[in-house]
Simulated assay, not measured.
Amino acid sequence: MGQSGSNEGPSATIQCVTRDFLQVRFDLEPFPDEILQKILSFLPPRELVTRCRLVSRRWKHLVDSPTLWKLKYGFDPWNVIHGGDGWVVENNRCPVEGAESQTCFVTSFFWCSKSQTIDLLKEGFCEHYLDVHQPPIAISDWVAGREDCGCMYEINVHLLAADRQSIKTFSNPTLQIDQWNNQIYHQVSHVFENYGPGVRFVQFSHKGKDTLFWKGWYRARFTNTSVTVRCNVNENQRVACEHSAFHWSRHR
Rank of each mutant, 00 (worst) to 15 (best):
S166N: 05
L159T: 01
C151T: 06
W180Q: 11
C151D: 07
D141A: 03
H158R: 15
P173H: 13
V188T: 06
H190W: 14
N182S: 14
A161S: 14
I167N: 05
G216R: 10
K215P: 09
R164D: 04
D210C: 11
E193F: 05
E154V: 09
H190L: 07
R219P: 06
Y129W: 02
W142N: 10
K168Q: 12
G150E: 02
Q179P: 00
Q179A: 15
Y195C: 04
W217R: 00
C151V: 04
V199L: 01
Y218N: 13
N172Y: 15
Y218Q: 12
V202S: 13
G198R: 08
Y218C: 09
R164L: 12
P197Y: 00
H190C: 12
Y218H: 15
R219H: 05
Q134K: 00
H158N: 14
I167R: 02
R219A: 13
Y218K: 08
N172C: 15
L159A: 11
H133Q: 06
M152Q: 12
K207G: 11
S166Y: 00
P173A: 13
D178V: 15
F170W: 09
V132G: 00
G198F: 12
I184A: 15
G145H: 10
F192C: 05
W214E: 07
D131Q: 01
D178N: 14
A162G: 04
R200P: 04
L175K: 11
V188G: 06
V132C: 07
D210P: 02
V199W: 03
V157D: 10
A220Y: 03
L160Q: 06
L175M: 15
W142Q: 08
W180A: 04
F170T: 02
I177E: 11
F213P: 01
N172T: 11
H206L: 05
T211L: 13
T169P: 01
A144Y: 06
D210L: 06
L212A: 14
Q134H: 02
E193W: 05
T169I: 10
D131F: 05
F204D: 00
H128I: 07
R219F: 03
D148E: 13
Y129N: 10
G208N: 00
